[in-house]
Amino acid sequence: MSDQRRKELQERLARLQDEAQRREDYLAIIRCQRAYGFYIDKGYWREASNLFTQDATYEQGVDGVYEGRERIHELIVKLSGGNPGPGLPFGQLNEHFQLQPVITIAQDGASAQGRWHALSMTGQYGEHAEWGEGVYENRYRKEDGVWKISALRFYPNFVAPYEGGWASLKPVEGDWRSPELADFPSDRPPSETYKPYPDIFTPPFHYVHPVTGEEVKS
């Protein structure tokens, strides 16, 4: 009887160890994405791109899909003004707040998805300043016990000039790909196209409604 009970306690312990692992994974995934933001803020492009898996993808707006860590590194540098860093040139502000995570870890604990809210303050002293807002729907993968970004999908909603703000924005017409990437074509076309604010677009939710369990249509 005692042996049987000990065995049951051992099984219960194993279940709880799995539970603890999920709680640790949740915090580790959040840490990874927040670290990404702090690196981007300060021009630490290599530290940021090192958070991706070797075969990761990066897709922003309608710029198309870029594949592989090295391509992602080059992309981040181009999108951030071209300075190799680490660091930023005089007068560049590049703050990218990583907020409001909703993290969903797969049943097997080997992959995850996360929705994040981005608030950005960017600009160049003496020239321009902008507020930005958008949503990330990212994927993460655990490799050798370490969580990495396996797919970054950023849906910018707007980048608005400080003067006049978002109320001054006009609907985008035609192609609104990032001009910085004109000479750096993507590996694949955009996985979906949309128009940002003042048009209305809801980035698709990776997770079902927390109460009804149903898909929330975007």
């Binding site: 840490r31 190799p84 680490p86 660091g87 005089f90």
Partner: peptide, 19 residues
């Protein structure tokens, strides 16, 4: 903290970046 993936500390900023 070290880089969460590489486990290595980030280097100091490069003065050549100009800021």
């Amino acid at each position: 903290y070290p880089n969460p993936v590489t486990g290595k500390d980030a280097p100091p900023p490069n003065p050549a970046a100009g800021g």
